[in-house]
Design a protein around this nucleic acid. Structure first.
Length: 489
RNA sequence: GGUCUCGUGGCCGAGUGGUUAGGCGGAGGUCUGCAAAACCUUUCACAGCGGUUCGAAUCCGCUCGAGACCUCCA
């Protein structure tokens, strides 16, 4: 394969040739979820996109260590219940252990991700399990003189950092712009400048997650976990760091600053950022109140949903857009994805029973090359999918005996379709309920009776069978070889 | 206000100086007892106005519009 993988590096804003620091090893760190609520469509996007990247890199022969963290520190504040004492008391009695909350949502997250056929990362570290590492990181920053203490909290000194480094290198910001910010931020009184960020926070009395440290009983700053865990598992400099575009600033910017100070080098070679899922043109977000949880999508239980959509439909929907573009949610778009996916997966089945012909009417090698070109061009899954649909057309024409494929070409096509559809895109057959033997046997019997009726031109009987089955959401498809059936969703 | 991104046909969504994206939908046809499925053909396009160019949806400028980040956020 002459084509080499090119990826868009947020650091340069350009597509760059991908060259791992220590081939064939690749280190990839992706910002994972904060475990305080169910995952929504917006969370599915980075998971699926980086799953695609993980899968493709492995396919190319790289040995990837994929780290995706669970954030469970710093955001889990004990909301003080307002109102009567009674309510507050009850809330306290029923209050769950923080780790119980985290475990609950992590389990649910895994359920969602498994359904989406997202591969589990190599390591899934919890921020709460790496407090010591984070304290060490903060110590280093303090030793280098880039942190100052106020009331037991430590803040990163951006002004000092900016003398020798460019804070804003990733998000294209300049210190002067940041300084001109007029915004009043909470806790700003403790900071020298509004744009400084906390590396250690002293815990307020109501804060339930707290650890001892040289500075105070508290918890690490919001950006410390990724720096500390990235270094721990991938080294002081690693290949890929990914996450949503909304994390570019300040989260990833802060990570660069922290690591640069602590370890003397910029931590990441390639920064990759996926774009947002939008709904009615606006970002889907928990705080915006327009987020639809994955459980709701899979069950259809949400007023914004016209019906339920299967996990594979969601996966396909996400892969049909390039990861750097926004993706707009709508029922219409999801239904289109659902139908397209069905056509693709049906062709995958048809592929298995294709018969070999004498000659070939298609250039399978060329098609395969195009698939690699698409993926090598910054993981362009939508273009890859368009080529796979070219494959679908080929499969169906051969099946219809309107074209033929030689033995070698048929084998290549099978190989290619499987590798790209199942292995790289990670699409899979949905579990169709009722595929057990009994139903299958009963269906065969019914179809047999119907076939006889058709032979005898007893269309009243054959149509009754078809219509009655249709009421059970079973559709019949006739072809020259016989009839087949499937559940309609 | 600052920084940045985007504006593609009925919908979603690629592409980016000259050649078909693709999916869904619509229309016509083939096949079928009729359907469905499948296949073939087909319709609809690059926000607006200028500029560069032999040639621009693609480059540049302006206008209009939308969005993201600047605060936890995937």
């Amino acid at each position: 394969m002459e084509n080499k993988l090119h990826i868009t590096n947020s650091l340069s804003g350009k597509k760059e040739l991908f060259e791992p620091i220590n081939p064939p090893h690749v280190g990839m760190y992706v910002c994972g979820p904060t475990a305080y609520g169910d995952a929504h469509l917006g969370h599915a996007r980075p998971a699926v996109c980086f799953d695609l990247i993980y899968r493709y890199m492995q396919h190319l022969g790289y040995q990837v260590r994929y780290v995706r963290n669970i954030t469970d520190v710093g955001h889990l504040e004990h909301d003080a219940d307002e109102g009567e004492d009674k309510v507050a008391k009850k809330a306290r009695l029923e209050k769950l252990e923080p780790m119980e909350v985290v475990q609950y949502y992590v389990n649910r997250y895994h359920q969602n991700m498994d359904a989406l056929n997202v591969l589990r990362p190599s390591i899934e570290p919890h921020a709460s399990g790496h407090i010591i590492e984070q304290i060490e990181l903060v110590k280093k920053i303090q030793e280098k003189g880039f942190a100052y203490e106020t009331n037991g909290s430590l803040y990163f000194d951006i002004k000092k950092y900016s003398k020798d480094h460019h804070y804003g290198i990733l998000s294209g910001r300049r210190l002067e712009d940041l300084m001109s910010e007029t915004r009043q931020l909470e806790g700003q009184g403790e900071k020298k400048s509004s744009y400084d960020f906390a590396v250690w926070k002293k815990a307020q009395p109501e804060h339930i997650m707290r650890w001892p440290s040289p500075w105070s009983d508290g918890f690490p700053g919001w950006h410390a976990e990724c720096s500390a865990m990235g270094v721990k598992y991938l080294g002081e400099e690693f290949d890929i760091h990914g996450g949503g575009m909304d994390l570019l600033f300040p989260h990833h910017e802060a990570e660069i600053a922290q690591s640069t100070v602590a370890y003397g080098k910029s931590p990441v070679k390639y920064w990759l950022h996926n774009n947002m899922v939008t709904i009615n043109g606006k970002k889907m977000g928990k705080s915006l109140g327009n987020a639809i949880s994955l459980f709701d999508i899979f069950s259809g239980e949400n007023k914004l949903m016209e019906k339920a959509y299967s996990p594979m439909t969601i996966r396909f929907f996400i892969l049909q857009a390039h990861y750097r573009s926004t993706l707009d949610f709508s029922n219409e778009a999801l239904q289109a994805a659902e139908k397209g996916l069905k056509r693709l997966m049906q062709a995958m089945q048809t592929l298995e029973k294709l018969e070999v012909g004498n000659s070939s009417d298609f250039n399978i090698q060329g098609l395969e090359s195009k698939c690699y070109e698409a993926m090598n061009d910054d993981f362009n899954s939508p273009v890859l999918i368009s080529h796979l649909f070219e494959g679908v057309r080929i499969i169906n024409s051969v099946n219809d005996k309107k074209a033929s494929l030689s033995t070698t070409d048929l084998e290549s096509l099978k190989q290619m379709m499987k590798v790209f559809t199942l292995e790289i895109l990670g699409l899979q057959e949905e579990d169709t309920d009722g595929q057990d033997e009994l139903i299958s046997y009963l269906m065969d019997t019914l179809l047999d009776i119907r076939q006889n009726a058709r032979k005898n031109k007893d269309f009243a009987t054959s149509d009754k069978i078809r219509d009655d089955l249709a009421k059970l959401n079973i559709s019949i498809k006739d072809s020259k070889e016989g009839s087949s059936w499937e559940f309609e969703k």
